[in-house]
Design a binder for these strands. Sequence first.
DNA 1: TTGTTAAATTAACATCGTTAAGTAAATTAT
DNA 2: ATAATTTACTTAACGATGTTAATTTAACAA
Lengths: 214, 214
Amino acid sequence: MPPKPKTEFERQQLRTLILDAARELFVVHGVEAVTMREIAKRIGYSATSIYLHFADKEALIRAVCDTDFLALADALKNNLVIDDPVERLLAFGRGYAQFALSYPNHYRMMFMTEHPPCDPANSCIQQNNAEQDAYFQLKIVVNQVFLAGKFKPDLNDADLIAQTVWAGMHGVCALQISMANDIWVNWADIEQRLQLMQLTLIRGLLQDEPNILK
Amino acid sequence: MPPKPKTEFERQQLRTLILDAARELFVVHGVEAVTMREIAKRIGYSATSIYLHFADKEALIRAVCDTDFLALADALKNNLVIDDPVERLLAFGRGYAQFALSYPNHYRMMFMTEHPPCDPANSCIQQNNAEQDAYFQLKIVVNQVFLAGKFKPDLNDADLIAQTVWAGMHGVCALQISMANDIWVNWADIEQRLQLMQLTLIRGLLQDEPNILK
DNA sequence: TTGTTAAATTAACATCGTTAAGTAAATTAT
DNA sequence: ATAATTTACTTAACGATGTTAATTTAACAA
């Protein structure tokens, strides 16, 4: 059942179809376990058709990543309206971890595997757009705590603080994703680990310990 | 030029030869990029010979991991003799990061990719041996800080503390390894990030801030 | 000498990402 | 209206990979 010249809309539609099929398979089986042929089969096309829309598997993966970065920013943006800046930061971190642990295969694809250097010009995400760029959101949230004068007085680089907060939460999530089944380590409950990491970051970075830390 | 019945020693020798060749290639190119045929070629055997010593590539990888876990423990054990418990913990974390960033492909293989659940019985590493088990070393170091009464009074689970310290350092190293080339993020210097993470962990976990934090 | 076993090799398989060649329908040109 | 071109797609095929099966060669045992 072959071809007509397609409108740009129809082309985008098929592109999206591929993207969605890939995402659904990636999230269940992980990027590496999913083949181009499987993705194609799921949408009733031949594998080679994918190459009419994406240069190679890597490009497809990165396009899926793009939509997932959008999804992450979308999932986190609710936290930006929380009143108290420290509570906001805590909720933001908690939301981040929830995303990571809910979609470990996506998280692995997004933050735990090396992509060839990403070109912001070629991305559908607008960098420094608070609706789309989760890293920008983090910088905002950290900067608001900074401007509120909450950090310890010798901490004056908001970017560095943001990256440290990120690294702390990433460390807990990444170890959970990669190593949770490693019986060598007597893992504490993941909730406890997240809780203590957040507590430690707050205590280690803030001037005064807030009394909200249940 | 083929076969004689071999002594157990000769068998072990060849096994080690395979292991070393695999390690050398893994450390340069990463596990995934290295093929069984390349490993075999490097030692002058055919690819199928490897299967006489290792069930499959995964088993070979895990055997290499084992020797690397030993190497990590060996690299870290010098820190165990440092006098002050807090300085000891800091040096230990610093040594860990140095290993991670010096051998990123090994680190990725060891801590950033999911292996099938490891069987301590089948490992050459003696669990809870302070010479061989780096996680046990960490628990010792953390526990010594704990016994010295240095942690905040509401922290009473040394395992949980150890896993939080680990996660913090792992977070910095793992983001560096996977994301350092991501131009989306304006990365601070890796040394600064390690420094601030250590400072934050110390401040967040200890009762009193030591004055050693240059 | 003849089997038997061990260590290795070569052939071969299925699967993967990917490219080349081919096919059929719609559009354009004559 | 028919021929040529373009578009969207498919099937074939390639080279590489992990792995298994079949085969060779050499040492030992009867």
